[in-house]
Amino acid sequence: MKRWILLALLFAVAVALSLLLGVRHLTPSDVWQAVTAPDPRNPAHVTLLTIRLPRLAGGLIAGAALGLAGTVMQSLTRNPLADPGILGVNAGAALAVVLGALLLGRADNGIVTVLAFPGAALASVAVFLPGGGLSGDAGPVRLTLAGAALNALLISAVSAIVQFRGEALDILRFWIAGSLASAAERPVAAMSLVALCGAVLALAIAPRLEVLSLGGSLARGLGTRPGIVQAQALLAVTALTGAAVAIAGPIGFLGLMVPPLARRVAGHSLRLELAASVALGAAILLLADTAGRLIFPPAEVRAGIMTALLGGPIFILIARRLKPGAQG
């Protein structure tokens, strides 16, 4: 219980900092007045309503979705290094959006953003088939390398596109490292619905995922059909990752950091772990985004870069702890 309270506090602090800090620091009374009695001539109110609040909304949805996606992935693969960024699902979604934007000529078109979903779906199939991730006994090295290979392939494709179209580099810079800066221009409301569907699906299949983690044959004996549960889990991951990428671009390593922390908070029930992942994912992404705004004002360090800078060392930490038996 104490840990749940700590999590709630962390979440509240992350939300508050995200609203208050930035190039222009606001005070809590600014926030209160901006919400209760907005004044269009007061620059603090305008900042809050047109920049901070949309950004907060985008960060909440994208962070929660990525945290959930990470927990589902790690439960599905029984691999503590699984993450939508590391396994290339982010890159697949991003590449599909970049391709669509270049072909249709517009970056922030709603139709183009929808391409994130088939992109994420294709990438997750591509990484899980040769990685052997779905058989549940793929070692972390194998799955992680399959992800690295997929990432390399997709980044090659993106670089090739940039050579075709020089102006694409500016789009590319956004799509290589995600950011919440342009969340206001993105279809946050629509994507939050999709993410909600993914979250409901994840919660619904959580008990069966737990059974599946006992091993395929035992799960079959208990009346769970592994193929169907795996397909449902991938569907949930695709919906969650696609929604997050559509809002914020590819943000990696959240799915790596969230599940171990969520397990500490929630114990061993996957449903509770998923619930904790929602709050943790949102809180970490908001904190990363706020820190990125404060390092070199008025320039911003993208949230995707902040999470990647944090994520590399955490990846090493987890890799070091793997038991030799779990390697390979």
Binding site: A148, A177, G252, V301, A308, G312, P313, A319, L322, P324
Partner: peptide
């Protein structure tokens, strides 16, 4: 184990890529 070396190497690769991307945006 060699597998740990490979994994830690991948992690170093992630970090250098992140720093490289960061420099790119600056």
């Amino acid at each position: 184990p060699a597998a740990t070396v490979v994994l830690v190497g991948l992690g170093i690769g992630f970090t250098t890529t992140a720093i490289g991307t960061f420099l790119m945006t600056r």
